[in-house]
Design a protein around this nucleic acid. Structure first.
Lengths: 360, 360
DNA sequence: GCATATTGTGGAAGCGTTTCCATACAGGGG
DNA sequence: CCCCTGTATGGAAACGCTTCCACAATATGC
C-alpha cells in the first residue's frame, strides 16, 4: 500500500511553493501566470495527486460531510422503507455538491458516548431521521452547537429546530373532508404509534374536521394501533366486537389498513361493500397486497431532498430561524371507499361550520 | 456557535502538557501518577471535551471510517431492499467497534472525479455493494490501494478482491435437486438481470444439475428476465405462447416469480394445480403478495455483517489473500410447487449420474 | 525619475491531534 | 559519592492542507 501523493510533492515537481500549488489546485488561476498554472496542473496530473480531505477539513474547519442520524429508539431503522426514500433524497441533493453523508446509528444509551458518537468533529451538520417523542436525539440537539434539521417529523414549535415533513394534518384533513363529502358520517379511526408525532397529528386533524363539520367522534370506533400490519388486524378484531359498525374506517397508515382489511375479509366482511377503508401514505410495498386502497400519497424522497437543502442553507448563511416545511399530500382515490349505503345517490352533506376546512 | 474545546485547553486547565493530557485521555493511565490522571480527567469532564476525530485521523493516519459504496450502474440503489439489509449488517458490526460508515453513491461518470469521490483520504476501506458486471467500481478497485471487499456479488476468481455473498450456485442446486426429486422433468427457467453475476450463477447451477441428472434443458422454456416483477409477467406471457408447457418454472428471484404468477392467474392458469412455480430469495416484501411461494431463503444482513468483519480483518492484519465467502441458502417449501400430475403417487426419479449433486 | 499600484510568489502560522524522544528527578547498588 | 535504572513529564516534530500577510518585481501616474 504505497503512500499517497501529497501537495508538497506536487509543488516540488512544479518548482513552486506549497501556497502556489494549493491556490492553483483550488482553481484560483487568475492569481498566477498561465505558465505556472500549467506547470502545477501537469505535475498534479502526472503524479496522480488527490487532495487529502482530512487535512483540508482540518485546515478549513469544515468537513463537507453531513450526518444522517438514525433514531436509536427505532430498531434497525435502515430497514424501513421510509428511511430509504429519505436517504435517497438526501444523497441526491448532496452528491452533486460534493458533500459526503455519514450514517450514524448510535446504539449506545449512555449520553456521553452517544454524544461523542454523533459529534466528534467529523460532520458539519446533521439530519435527524424521524425523531420520535422523547428521543435522546432531540435532547442532544438542544444542547449541541451543530446545525441540524429533522426530516420526517413535524416537531412542536418549542423545539428550535428546522424540520421537513409531510403535512400530516393537512393531508388528513383532505382525506377526512373527502370522506365526509362522500356522505360518510359514522367514521372509525385506527391510530398510529403513540411515540410518533405524526400519529397525533393525523388523529388531531381527523377530530378537528369532524368537529368543524359538527359530527361526533364515537370513541369506541377509535382504536389504538402502532403503524404495524398486525396492529391493523387487532384493531379490526376489536372493532368487529362493537354492537354497531361505522360505515368507513380511516387507518393512520397503509400498513394498518392492509392488516385491517385482511382481518375483515377473514371474518367475512367485504371491503368496500360492507365497510369502506382508507389508508394513509400510499406505501408502494402495500400496493401489491391491497391494490385498490384509497389513500393519501406524499413524497418521502422530497422530504430528504429538502431537508438536505435546508441544512446546507443553514450551514452557509448561518443559523437562521428554524422554519418548518410541510409537503402536501394528495388524495389517491381507488376502490376501498364507496359512498355509505344510506346515502348512495342521496343528498350529500356539507360543512355546518362556516369555513374551517380549507386546505393549506 | 461557540468553538469546541481543544486538548490544549484541557491540558492548560489540568496544568500539564499536551502529551500528558493526550496520553491520559487515551487511557494510558499507568504512565502517570494517579493524581495527574485525576486532574486531567476532571478537567476534560468539566470542559466537556470531545476529541476531534479529524485531527486524530490525520495524526494517526487512519480514519476509522469505512465507505459503503453504491454501484453507480444501479439507479437509486438505496431504494432496494437488498442494500438495506446489507447496510444494516454493516452498521451492526461496525457500530460497537466505533467505526463510522460513509455512504458514497458516485453519480459522476468521469473516472477522475469518480475516483476522487471515493478515495479522498477519508476512509480506511470500502465495501462495494453488489458491483455488477463491467461496473466502474471494479475497475477502480483494481488500481486502488484501498482495502475493499465486495458485498453481494460473487466475483470471478480473476478479481483479486474479497467478496461475501450468498451461495447462489449452491442454493440453486439445492432447489433444482429438490424439484427433480419431486418428480419434475420439464422445467422452465426465468433468468435474472444479465449484468448481475448472480443471474449467471443461478442459471449455471440450474443447467449443471439438469446435466448431472441427465435431463435436457428445453431452451424455449428458458426466458430472459431482469429481476423485476414486470419481467416476470412478460416471461409468463411469452411462455404461455409455447405449444407445450413445462410442469414447473423456476424464477431467478421472488419478484419475477410474483409477476409470473400474477400473469398466469390472469390467463386462467392455476398455480400450482396447472403449473408449479418456485422463486428465489424469500423476499419479505413479496410475501404479502404471494404468501405461499416455495423459494430459497438467505441472510442478506449476514452478508453485510461478514463483509464488514472481513474488511476490518484486512485493515488490521494487512492485506491477506482475497477470500470469497459464500453463505448457504435454505429451501423454504411452501405451496407453489407440487409434484407434477404424471408422477403424483408414482415412482420418484433419482440422479442418473453417480454423485454430482451433493450440497457444498 | 520618484512615489504608488499592481501582479506574481513564497514564508510561516495555523488546524487539533499523536508520538518519538529527551529530560528531570528519585531511589538503589556499588 | 557516583552511576545506573526506572518513573513522571514535557518539547517538538509530525500529519497534509489552507490562508494571511509580506515581499519582490514590474507597471502606472505625475
Amino acid at each position: 500500500m504505497k503512500r499517497r501523493v501529497t501537495l508538497r510533492e506536487v509543488a516540488q515537481r512544479a518548482g513552486c511553493s506549497l501556497t502556489t500549488a494549493s491556490n492553483i489546485l483550488q482553481g484560483r488561476y487568475h492569481l498566477y501566470q498561465a505558465q505556472t498554472v500549467e506547470r502545477v496542473l501537469t505535475a498534479a496530473r502526472e503524479l496522480g495527486y488527490r487532495a487529502n480531505h482530512l487535512a483540508r477539513s482540518l485546515a478549513r474547519q469544515r468537513t463537507c460531510t453531513i450526518g444522517f442520524i438514525l433514531d436509536p429508539t427505532h430498531a434497525r431503522i435502515t430497514r424501513s422503507d421510509y428511511a430509504q426514500h429519505v436517504l435517497d433524497g438526501v444523497l441526491a441533493y448532496l452528491e452533486p455538491l460534493e458533500y459526503d453523508v455519514k450514517i450514524i446509528s448510535p446504539r449506545v444509551t449512555d449520553p456521553d458516548s452517544f454524544w461523542r458518537r454523533i459529534d466528534n468533529g467529523t460532520i458539519d451538520g446533521a439530519i435527524l431521521l424521524a425523531p420520535t417523542i422523547g428521543s435522546p436525539l432531540l435532547e442532544w440537539c438542544q444542547h449541541s452547537a451543530l446545525p441540524a434539521v429533522a426530516a420526517g417529523s413535524t416537531l412542536p414549535a418549542n423545539y428550535s429546530l428546522s424540520a421537513v415533513d409531510i403535512d400530516n394534518e393537512g393531508a388528513m384533513r383532505l382525506l377526512v373532508e373527502w370522506i365526509l363529502q362522500q356522505g360518510h358520517r359514522e367514521i372509525g379511526f385506527v391510530k398510529g404509534h403513540p411515540l410518533h408525532w405524526s400519529a397525533h397529528q393525523r388523529e388531531r386533524a381527523f377530530r378537528a374536521v369532524m368537529g368543524e363539520w359538527g359530527y361526533p367522534v364515537r370513541e369506541e370506533w377509535v382504536l389504538q394501533g402502532d403503524y404495524s400490519m398486525e396492529s391493523g388486524q387487532r384493531a379490526a378484531e376489536q372493532l368487529l366486537r362493537c354492537a354497531a359498525l361505522p360505515s368507513v374506517v380511516l387507518c393512520a397508515n397503509d400498513g394498518m389498513a392492509a392488516g385491517f382489511i385482511q382481518a375483515c375479509e377473514r371474518r367475512g366482511i367485504r371491503i368496500p361493500e360492507d365497510l369502506s377503508v382508507a389508508g394513509f401514505d400510499d406505501e408502494p410495498l402495500i400496493q401489491p397486497v391491497i391494490p385498490h386502497l384509497t389513500t393519501i400519497r406524499h413524497d418521502k424522497y422530497q422530504v430528504g431532498y429538502l431537508a438536505a437543502q435546508i441544512l446546507l442553507q443553514q450551514l452557509e448563511q448561518g443559523q437562521s430561524t428554524p422554519q418548518p416545511i410541510l409537503l402536501p399530500g394528495t388524495l389517491i382515490v381507488r376502490h376501498t371507499v364507496i359512498a355509505p349505503r344510506a346515502v348512495v345517490r342521496a343528498g350529500i352533506g356539507s360543512p355546518q361550520s362556516s369555513e374551517g376546512g380549507s386546505k393549506r
